[in-house]
Simulated scan of single mutants.
Amino acid sequence: MSINVPTLLTLLRILLIPLLVVVYYLPIAWAALFASAIFILAAITDWLDGYLARRWNQTTPFGAFLDPVADKLIVAVALGVLIETHASLWMTAPALIIIGREIVISALREWMAELGQRAQVAVSSLGKWKTSLQMIAIGMLLAFEPGHVWACLGLLLLYIAAVLTLWSMFIYLKVAWPMMRPSLAMEKN
Rank of each mutant, 00 (worst) to 15 (best):
L20C: 09
V21W: 05
V23G: 06
Y24S: 02
Y24M: 03
Y25K: 08
L26A: 15
L26D: 06
A29R: 07
W30F: 10
W30A: 14
A32Q: 14
F34E: 01
F34P: 00
S36Q: 06
S36E: 03
A37I: 15
A37Q: 10
F39Q: 01
I40D: 04
L41A: 14
L41S: 12
L41P: 03
A42E: 11
A42L: 13
A42N: 06
A43M: 09
A43C: 09
A43E: 10
I44G: 09
T45E: 06
T45I: 02
T45N: 08
D46K: 01
D46P: 05
D46M: 10
D46Y: 10
W47D: 02
W47K: 09
W47G: 09
L48Y: 10
G50A: 10
G50D: 07
Y51Q: 09
L52T: 06
L52R: 08
A53D: 07
A53F: 12
R54G: 07
R54T: 13
R55Q: 13
R55W: 12
R55S: 14
W56F: 10
W56D: 06
W56N: 11
N57I: 11
Q58E: 03
Q58P: 00
Q58Y: 00
T59D: 04
T60Q: 03
P61I: 10
P61M: 06
F62M: 12
F62K: 08
F62I: 15
A64L: 14
A64F: 07
A64P: 01
F65S: 14
F65W: 15
L66E: 07
D67C: 09
D67I: 05
P68W: 04
A70Q: 02
A70M: 00
K72P: 01
K72E: 04
L73F: 13
L73W: 03
I74S: 10
I74E: 03
V75I: 15
A76S: 14
A78T: 11
L79M: 08
G80F: 12
V81S: 02
V81Y: 03
V81L: 12
L82Q: 08
L82N: 03
I83H: 08
E84M: 13
T85R: 15
A87E: 11
A87K: 11
S88V: 02
S88K: 04
L89I: 15
L89H: 08
W90T: 14
W90A: 14
M91I: 05
T92F: 13
P94R: 09
P94S: 09
P94L: 08
P94Y: 11
A95K: 01
L96H: 12
L96V: 15
L96C: 13
L96N: 01
I97M: 12
I97R: 06
I98Y: 06
I98A: 01
I98R: 05
I98Q: 03
I99E: 08
G100H: 09
R101A: 02
R101T: 03
I103N: 07
V104K: 12
I105L: 15
I105Y: 11
S106P: 05
S106R: 06
S106I: 02
A107P: 00
A107N: 10
A107D: 00
L108Y: 01
R109N: 05
E110V: 06
E110T: 11
E110Y: 11
E110Q: 13
W111E: 04
W111S: 01
W111V: 00
